[in-house]
Amino acid sequence: MSGDLNQAKILRNKVNRAAAKLKYNFYQTQIAAMHESVSHDWWKHMKTIMGLKTNDKSCMQGLANKTTDGDCGLLANTMNDFFVSVSDHLPRLNKSHKVFDVNEELPDQYVISVCTTFKALESVKANKATGPDNIPAWVLRNYANLCSRPSINC
């Protein structure tokens, strides 16, 4: 019986060494592929190596599922509240405030056209990290037509 136990240990050790060698070869080929790829694909490769799922959803529902339990209306209100909060520290203007004369021509350096804004948002790289506003780049890119136009508050 002890001969069977020794033989089992020998075979187990061979299997463990073979598994370790296969793992090493697998990771080496994965890392080699990662070095050959474009740098912005590295995180995708790292997720694959670590066995994590890659999530390439580019829809508002996916963002709503992650942040507001799938409620797109609440997500829209949250985003709107953020945009409003950007200018909360500024004093409110009332109708008696005169910022500039309506008849006076505004210098071109102060005017940013909707088209320029749209082109800038449309050219945002969707796979880049979010900025301090925590708005994913793909949201700005996919909804550039909505984000580039001024909103009218009544």
Rank of each mutant, 00 (worst) to 15 (best):
Pro91Asp: 06
Glu105Asn: 02
Met79Ile: 13
Asn6Val: 12
Leu11Thr: 12
Met1His: 11
His89Arg: 03
Tyr110Gly: 00
Leu63His: 02
Gly70Cys: 02
Ile135Arg: 01
Met60Ser: 01
Asn6Met: 09
Asp69Thr: 01
Val86Gln: 11
Asn134Trp: 05
Lys119Phe: 10
Asn25Asp: 08
Asn6Thr: 13
Asn103Val: 07
Ala19Thr: 10
Ile152His: 13
His40Cys: 03
Gly131Val: 04
Val15Glu: 06
Ile49Lys: 01
Ala137Ser: 14
Asn55Val: 10
Asp101Met: 03
Ile31Thr: 13
Arg92Phe: 07
Lys57Leu: 04
Val114Ser: 06
Lys53Cys: 01
Met34Tyr: 04
Phe100Lys: 07
Ala19Val: 09
Lys128Gln: 11
Leu140Ala: 07
Pro132Leu: 14
Leu146Ile: 11
Thr116Arg: 08
Ser148Arg: 07
Asp101Leu: 06
His35Val: 11
Gln30Tyr: 06
Thr29Ala: 15
Gln28Val: 13
Arg92His: 07
Met34Glu: 04
Pro91Asn: 07
Ser151Phe: 13
Trp43Arg: 10
Asn94Val: 13
Gly62Trp: 09
Arg149Asp: 00
Leu140Thr: 07
Val99Thr: 09
Ile112Thr: 13
Met50Tyr: 10
Ile152Leu: 15
Cys154Phe: 12
Leu106Ala: 02
Lys21Ala: 08
Asn127Met: 09
Lys9Gly: 02
Lys53Tyr: 06
Pro107Met: 02
Asn145Phe: 10
Asn94Trp: 07
Ile10Met: 08
Cys147Arg: 03
Val99Leu: 15
Ser151Ile: 11
Trp43Tyr: 14
Val99Arg: 06
Gly3Arg: 14
Ser87Cys: 05
Lys98Ser: 09
Asp88Val: 05
Pro91Tyr: 08
Asn103Glu: 11
Cys59Pro: 00
Pro136Gly: 04
Thr67Phe: 12
Ser85Asn: 07
Ser85Met: 03
Ala18Gln: 04
Phe83Leu: 06
Asn134Ala: 04
Thr54Ile: 14
Thr130Tyr: 06
Met50Val: 08
Met50Leu: 15
Val84Asp: 09
Asn153Trp: 12
Ala32Lys: 15
Met46Leu: 15
Ala137Met: 12
Ser96Glu: 06
Leu5Glu: 15
Leu93Pro: 01
Val15Tyr: 09
Met50Thr: 11
Ala76Lys: 13
Ser123Trp: 03
Ala64His: 04
Gln7Leu: 14
Asn65Ile: 02
Lys14Arg: 12
Thr130Trp: 05
Gln7Tyr: 12
Ser151Tyr: 08
Phe82Ser: 03
Gly70Phe: 05
Leu146Glu: 04
Leu106Val: 15
Asn80Ile: 08
Lys21Pro: 02
Trp43Phe: 11
His40Gly: 02
Asn77Pro: 00
Ala126Ser: 14
Ala8Arg: 15
Lys128Leu: 09
Ala120Leu: 06
Ala32Phe: 08
Leu74Val: 06
